[in-house]
């Protein structure tokens, strides 16, 4: 059984050749990137791209396949990031011990919230997730134990340290993030063929019919939301050691949740490659455009561009860029 699961996750045989080639190119690109591009900024953008791939792949489960507009990914990222940071700062616990705990906290939060929130549907659910994230953010801003609005800074270590994941060279972070993304992609590859994947798509299409086919809608949604929490939690743990600093505005902010959702929507919600395509477009655009405009004292234009993209995508092609590609392919 386990071997079959692994085989399912590793087999991309049912995909068209073009997708497989694209995937291999993506892997090669990520592997050789740090050796070709030496610029510090470019490498940082690349790592951010990988983190957002991870976030997006996770959100895609509940938002894309599940059709539930959860706008609170940031709180799961934050839960895990804060757990890891606190454990390291206060008790000096190694990163590799903190991370499972951080992910656990993020997942438990998802479970408890999901259990209540999934009684709601559609817009009620979406607004409730926003409400909850805002409550969490305000709580963390006013909670001194976790550093309040000042946030938490991790102690710097003299030498590169594998136990606490502290390195000077970004290469280590690059490959670590890459491994996380690969795990996420393999999981997605298993997921889309699994019972859970089918049941979730059935729910998105028609809840009434799904229920009549013996699917426990509430439980499937809660389960998926927890898995989404795991992805966000892994991202949060990585974020903490990568930046060495977190505060309620960087990891708990609504803007982060928005970014994740918009990115996935633009790339193509409910498809395997959608979140990666979205991140590939938005993250470099965001960082380079943001840096360029910020240098000229213009703020906000970058977000206006994403907003335009999302409005156009929602109005004309809700399946995003991947939906356009698929349509063109089916026509041929």
């Amino acid at each position: 059984m386990q071997i079959r699961t692994l085989k399912d996750a590793l087999s991309f045989g049912d995909l068209p050749a073009s997708e497989r080639i694209g995937f291999i190119l993506f892997i090669i690109f990520c592997l050789i990137f740090p050796w070709i591009i030496k610029g510090g900024f470019a490498q940082a953008v690349m790592i951010q791209f990988l983190i957002f791939c991870l976030y997006g792949l996770g959100w895609n489960l509940i938002g894309g396949y599940g059709g539930q507009v959860a706008l609170g990914q940031a709180k799961n990222v934050g839960m895990s990031a804060y757990t890891v940071a606190l454990l390291i700062v206060r008790w000096d616990i190694p990163f590799w011990v903190c991370t499972p705990l951080g992910v656990l906290v993020a997942t438990v939060e998802s479970f408890v919230l999901g259990y209540f929130l999934f009684r709601l549907r559609g817009h009620y659910f979406a607004i409730a997730t926003i409400a909850v994230s805002l409550v969490w953010q305000q709580l963390f801003i006013n909670w001194n134990f976790v550093g309040g609005a000042r946030g938490i800074e991790l102690p710097l270590r003299e030498t590169p340290n594998f136990i606490y994941m502290q390195f000077v060279s970004p290469i280590y972070y690059h490959y670590f993030a890459f491994v996380l993304v690969m795990i996420a992609i393999l999981y997605m590859n298993w997921f889309r063929k699994s019972r859970l994947g089918y049941q979730l798509r059935a729910i998105t299409a028609n809840e009434e019919v799904a229920e009549s086919l013996g699917i426990n809608i509430h439980w499937v949604k809660v389960k998926t939301y927890c898995i989404t929490g795991v992805f966000a939690g892994m991202g949060g743990a990585f974020y903490t050691v990568y930046y060495n600093y977190i505060d309620p505005f960087s990891v708990m902010h609504l803007e982060l949740s928005i970014m994740i959702a918009l990115m996935t929507m633009i790339g193509g919600a409910g498809s395997m490659w959608g979140p990666i395509i979205g991140a590939m477009i938005l993250i470099p655009l965001d960082r380079y455009l943001g840096a360029w405009l910020g240098g000229r004292g213009i703020i906000g234009v970058d977000f206006m561009i994403y907003a335009m993209m999302v409005m156009i995508i929602s109005a004309y092609e809700p399946k995003g860029i991947w939906g356009i590609i698929e349509k063109a392919r089916r026509k041929r």
């Binding site: 089918y198 798509r201 059935a202 998105t204 299409a205 028609n206 019919v209 799904a210 409910g270």
Partner: peptide, 8 residues
Amino acid sequence: LMSISGDL
């Protein structure tokens, strides 16, 4: 009418 999904 029991159609579930156009994607499947």
